[in-house]
């Protein structure tokens, strides 16, 4: 049974007993036991179709397969780590925020709509589906915000990290003549979530 365990806020300890999990290339900082690391292919284990999709969409995700027996310690540029348990649902996350994907989870590329166009994150995002755990990184401790039908949520696209649940995303613009003359508030574009779910944001703007 592969287990994700946080060691502090910035290190993820993963115990493997014969299974294979995937982690971002180069994220290993230490390990004990016998563990081997192998490049997971251009599609990050998504097959040929996945590889082509990632190439075309620019939502690149370089993963490596870690397998064996032991404990692997993962970290990424001293970023804070959050472990998200999935029970058959889908987590949407920016490929740059993925740290590790547990066994039994599938990754894919998904079209996100217009929001990416303005937030320089591209029109596509990574989806993680299945039963298991996924670890995501954020610049500063991640803030978990709940969305319910009565309480839609609006977030800054630059602070958005991931979302989980049945939600529709829409794009809110607040552009007036002020932006044209350079007197805008700096919050011209926002992301609005309607429905039921959870949104992870980071206390920093990219």
């Amino acid at each position: 049974m592969t287990q994700f365990r946080l060691q502090g806020h910035k290190v993820l300890a993963v115990t493997v007993e014969g299974e294979t999990f995937r982690a971002v290339t180069g994220a290993m900082v230490a390990y004990d036991g016998t563990v081997s690391f192998k490049h997971a292919g251009s599609g990050g284990g998504e097959g040929l179709r996945g590889a082509i999709k990632r190439r075309v969409t620019g939502e690149s995700l370089a993963l490596m397969e870690c397998s064996g027996h032991g404990t692997v310690y993962l970290a990424r540029e001293a970023a804070d780590i959050t472990v998200v348990p999935l029970a058959g649902d889908t987590l949407l996350v920016e490929s740059s925020s993925v740290l590790a994907v547990g066994p039994g989870l599938r990754t894919d590329v998904q079209f996100t709509g217009l929001r990416g166009a303005a937030s320089q994150q591209g029109l596509f995002t990574t989806s993680v589906t299945g039963n298991g755990e996924v670890a995501i990184v954020s610049d500063g401790p991640a803030v978990v915000l709940e969305v319910s039908p009565q309480y839609p949520l609006v977030v800054d696209p630059d602070a958005y990290v991931a979302s989980l649940g049945r939600m529709t995303q829409s794009f809110v613009t607040d552009i007036s003549w002020r932006n044209v003359v350079g007197e805008g508030s700096g919050e011209a574009f926002s992301l609005r979530f309607d429905g039921t779910g959870i949104v992870y944001i980071q206390p920093a703007e990219r």
């Binding site: 502090g8 910035k10 290190v11 290339t25 180069g26 994220a27 290993m28 900082v29 230490a30 690391f37 192998k38 490049h39 292919g41 370089a62 490596m64 397969e65 310690y73 970290a75 990424r76 540029e77 001293a78």
Partner: peptide, 30 residues
């Protein structure tokens, strides 16, 4: 050969620590 074609796992060079003691590791590759 994977490293040569740019398909390495990014963990090509590793430090093996043996003996008795404690190793200090930072949460970053910087």
């Amino acid at each position: 050969w994977r490293n040569a074609v740019g398909r390495g796992s990014g963990e090509a060079i590793q430090l093996q620590a043996t003996g008795q003691g404690t190793v200090l590791v930072q949460a970053s590759e910087q």
